[in-house]
Computed example of a mutant assay.
Amino acid sequence: MPITPSVDTHRCPLCGQANQCATVAGAPPETCWCMTAQVSPAALARVPPALRGATCLCPACAAPQPEKPEPPARDTAPI
């Protein structure tokens, strides 16, 4: 029989902080912060496969991160 690791459904699988999940706290799902927040697809992709669908991200990890601007092109012409 395979051993399933215990999952703390109150913790974010990416950072380990409290995920503030209303459903886990016993409140109706529609009251959860995630129902009105934009959740980053990149953050969801970072959740380990074994934890997908088992626990929620925290608001900080779920938030879309601003894209880093491209560094300015360097002039490679000889001086």
Rank of each mutant, 00 (worst) to 15 (best):
T9Y: 06
P59A: 04
S6R: 11
M35F: 05
P66I: 08
C56K: 01
E30I: 03
C34D: 02
R52P: 02
C61I: 02
P64Q: 02
C12L: 05
P66M: 11
A50I: 02
A77Y: 12
A62V: 00
A77V: 09
A43I: 09
A27E: 15
G26R: 06
Q38K: 07
A63T: 04
S6F: 13
Q65N: 06
V39D: 05
T76I: 14
A63D: 00
G16T: 07
P59Y: 02
A77R: 13
N19R: 00
L14F: 07
H10R: 13
A42C: 06
W33P: 00
T9P: 05
P59R: 00
P29W: 07
C21I: 01
T23G: 01
A63V: 00
N19M: 05
C56M: 07
P13S: 10
L57R: 08
Q20R: 13
R52S: 01
P41E: 12
H10G: 05
T9S: 12
T4H: 14
D75E: 10
P28V: 03
C32T: 09
I79Q: 14
D8G: 02
A73Q: 14
T76C: 11
P59F: 03
C61Y: 00
C21H: 03
R74D: 09
T76F: 15
L57T: 05
A22V: 00
L57S: 06
P66D: 13
L51S: 12
R11Q: 15
R11P: 03
P2K: 15
A60D: 11
R11F: 04
P49S: 11
T76K: 09
L44F: 01
P5Y: 05
M1S: 11
C61N: 02
P28C: 04
A54Y: 08
A18V: 14
P72T: 11
T9Q: 14
P59T: 03
T36R: 05
P13V: 03
P66C: 05
S40Q: 07
D8R: 14
P41W: 08
M35S: 03
M35V: 13
A50F: 02
W33R: 00
W33C: 00
P69S: 06
P78S: 13
Q20Y: 12
P78C: 08
P48F: 03
